[in-house]
Amino acid sequence: MTDRDNNLSRRRFLKLGSYGLLAVPAVAGLGWSTAAQAMERLSEDDPAAQALNYVHDASAAAGHPAYEEGQNCLNCLLYTDASAMDWGPCTVFPNLLVAAEGWCTAWVSR
């Protein structure tokens, strides 16, 4: 095998490898949205939700001493998919979706 052949196969390997790396986030993103769609929405009646004063609409939490104007799940650090504009996953409530406009006492600034 000549040097020219080695360079071509090395280039081809690097080229195909880079395509593979570019495909990983796209495929992972497709899997996540499918998994997120399969999850149930958190109910305000859920015992864990009640323990953290969770509400679907942050304006309903205005009377709570820990609530500050402008806080909601979408701008919380624990809301793990900031691109989910209606309902999304939260680390506090595993395997459940919370309302992006919701709020609970576990809110942490993003």
Rank of each mutant, 00 (worst) to 15 (best):
A35V: 06
P94E: 01
D5A: 10
G102E: 06
V108K: 14
A51L: 03
D86T: 10
Q71P: 00
A36P: 01
K15H: 07
G88K: 12
G17W: 00
E44K: 04
W32H: 05
N7E: 06
P65C: 11
H56Q: 12
A35E: 09
W107A: 04
A61N: 02
L97I: 06
P94Y: 13
A99M: 07
E68I: 15
C104P: 11
C76T: 12
W87F: 15
A58L: 07
W87K: 11
W32P: 01
G63C: 06
Q37P: 01
T34A: 02
L21E: 08
P89C: 02
L21K: 04
K15C: 04
V98T: 14
G63N: 15
G17V: 08
A99R: 09
P94A: 07
R41F: 01
R10S: 13
R12S: 12
G88A: 11
L42M: 01
R4P: 00
A62K: 12
V98P: 11
A100D: 06
L96E: 08
A48V: 03
N75F: 01
Q50A: 14
A26K: 04
G17L: 14
A99Q: 10
F93R: 09
A66F: 03
S43N: 11
C73F: 13
A84G: 13
L22H: 10
L14R: 06
G20F: 04
E69Q: 07
A28Q: 08
W32D: 08
Y79E: 09
R41Y: 03
D45Y: 10
L21M: 12
N7L: 10
N6L: 07
L16V: 15
D3N: 01
G20A: 12
V27Y: 00
A100M: 01
Q71F: 02
P94F: 14
N72I: 05
L21S: 07
N95L: 00
V24E: 05
L96K: 09
R4D: 15
T2A: 02
V98N: 15
A84L: 06
P25E: 14
P47S: 11
Y19R: 15
R4S: 13
G70A: 11
G29W: 12
A84Q: 09
R4C: 01
G88S: 14
A28M: 05
L8G: 05
D45L: 06
M39T: 02
D5F: 09
A23G: 06
L16T: 07
A51K: 12
L30G: 14
L16W: 12
R11M: 04
W103Q: 04
C73D: 07
S59E: 10
D86V: 14
N75W: 09
S83Y: 10
T2N: 12
L97F: 15
G70N: 10
A28W: 05
Q50P: 07
A49M: 09
S18P: 00
V27Q: 00
